[in-house]
Design a protein around this nucleic acid. Structure first.
Lengths: 252, 252
DNA sequence: AGTGTTTATCGTCAGGAAGACGACTATGAT
DNA sequence: ATCATAGTCGTCTTCCTGACGATAAACACT
């Protein structure tokens, strides 16, 4: 069968972003308010069309920079100045997922340290960090008693998948350090695990585990008291990306 | 900004399949010979265009049925007659990956028990099961001394990603049973792990591990001697999909 | 029938990792 | 000075794993 351009239907391809961070002991995701139909006024995940000459990862990194100012951190490159971790999550292509047309969305997962207020095209009121539980509870009421509208499109499903990916991946990788500033303490890293998993971990066992895994953490020599209490050693993320044996998520 | 159909570039969307099975103690993948340019005559992964009214998973299941006759096994449904495990793998959208046009391919991973010879549109010579090492070695020589051409497009990368997914996922899930017939012995399951990981496992420790994990295997009461030696108990896959603690892949 | 081979299955033992938790240390706040 | 807060080092018990001996039940020979 020869090549026939009419043999396949055209699709629009977008990237959507699940951008996660830890703020005030809670796992939060970036949400933007939709300014146009469909779902006008509702919260949604940031995203946009993939351009004609752009790779999927490039498109995701571009959208991430537009929405947050974050520089995507290539997992291969060692530098991690202001870079966020970025990886592909999954692709969503239900024919009915966008009422306007056939859209296939390649969702990406980005993890970032706690940041100043988000910006969405310069308009702060149209972007916010919200706890993932708040974004995921469908038709409930938020902390302020206001009714919560579910996320636009299938974005609740995408967000849930991204959260689950993050929760499981910090078990066996050093991904949790992506939520931390370049230098951090063992306690700060533990609070990341506690926020992402929503559990309390024993500080002593956690300390033994992370400091006893070769290549996971490298001490910088400095100390800090920014958490109060006794000064804590500062560490950087070591070269080890895989955590073996894994950190076990406590049973419920 | 109002909706403007000209604001986004059109893409072709395809599904590609990494279909894995275990044959003669080796992890094998399904490859089809391309009958048209580009890469005419080269081996490639099976796949095809997503239709206008089709979900991505539906498209992958349809392609799988066309190429192998396998019925995709929905992970939610309990029945697993002739069903193969099917899950989304990753999406590949480099602008240069297809010289004809901009194609975004949503790769899927399928796992199946050992099957009779494959069929590709009824033409057996254009489809085969090949050991993954043979398909992945670029520019080397196959077992028969013939030079081996690398897979078409970026399919070597996709295959490598699918193999890595399968290798890591059988560690912490019951996915390895997807390579087995509905009833199987502990030894047959162990040979699956050995083929997928390319290692030898201790039969006694393996037996203790899989029979000691609640819900992983349920005995059917029957026995078989199809492997020779002492009769072995037959099992079916239990309801447990997660293996905790995981089966540890031996270090190299 | 006996012997060897193959595979399955049960047991034992030592080493290591993890959960529970006690004890001590070094800061800032009152 | 005292307390609250966090960090860090140990101890103990329990569980899991890897290494490996031993037995059981089939088949293929002679």
């Amino acid at each position: 069968m020869p090549y026939d351009p009419s043999a396949f239907p055209p699709f629009a391809v977008t990237v959507d972003l699940v951008v996660l961070t830890v703020r005030r002991h809670a796992l939060c995701a970036l949400a933007v308010r939709r300014g146009e139909p469909p779902f006008q006024g509702r919260w949604a995940l940031p995203g946009g069309f993939v351009r004609a000459d752009e790779d999927l990862t490039q498109a995701a990194a571009r959208e991430l920079a537009e929405e947050t100012g974050l520089c995507a951190h290539d997992p291969a490159a060692p530098a991690q100045d202001n870079g966020a971790h970025l990886e592909q999550l999954a692709t969503y292509g239900d024919p009915e997922r966008d009422p306007r047309m056939r859209v296939v969305s390649v969702a990406h997962l980005a993890l970032a340290p706690d940041l100043p207020a988000p910006r969405a095209g310069g308009d702060a009121s149209n972007a916010r960090w919200a706890p993932v539980e708040e974004l995921l509870q469908q038709g409930g009421y938020g902390r302020d008693g206001e009714p919560v509208a579910p996320l636009a499109f299938d974005h609740a499903r995408i967000l849930a998948d991204g959260v689950e990916r993050a929760r499981s991946k910090i078990e066996y990788s050093s991904l949790a350090t992506a939520f931390c500033p370049p230098e951090f303490t063992v306690g700060e890293l533990r609070r990341v695990y506690e926020a992402v998993w929503g559990v309390a971990l024993d500080p002593r066992n956690f300390h033994r585990k992370v400091t006893g895994t070769p290549g996971f953490l490298v001490p910088t020599g400095g100390t800090t008291t920014r958490q109060g209490g006794r000064p804590a050693q500062l560490f950087r993320a070591g070269g080890a990306t895989l955590l073996n044996p894994p950190m076990l998520r406590p049973e419920v």
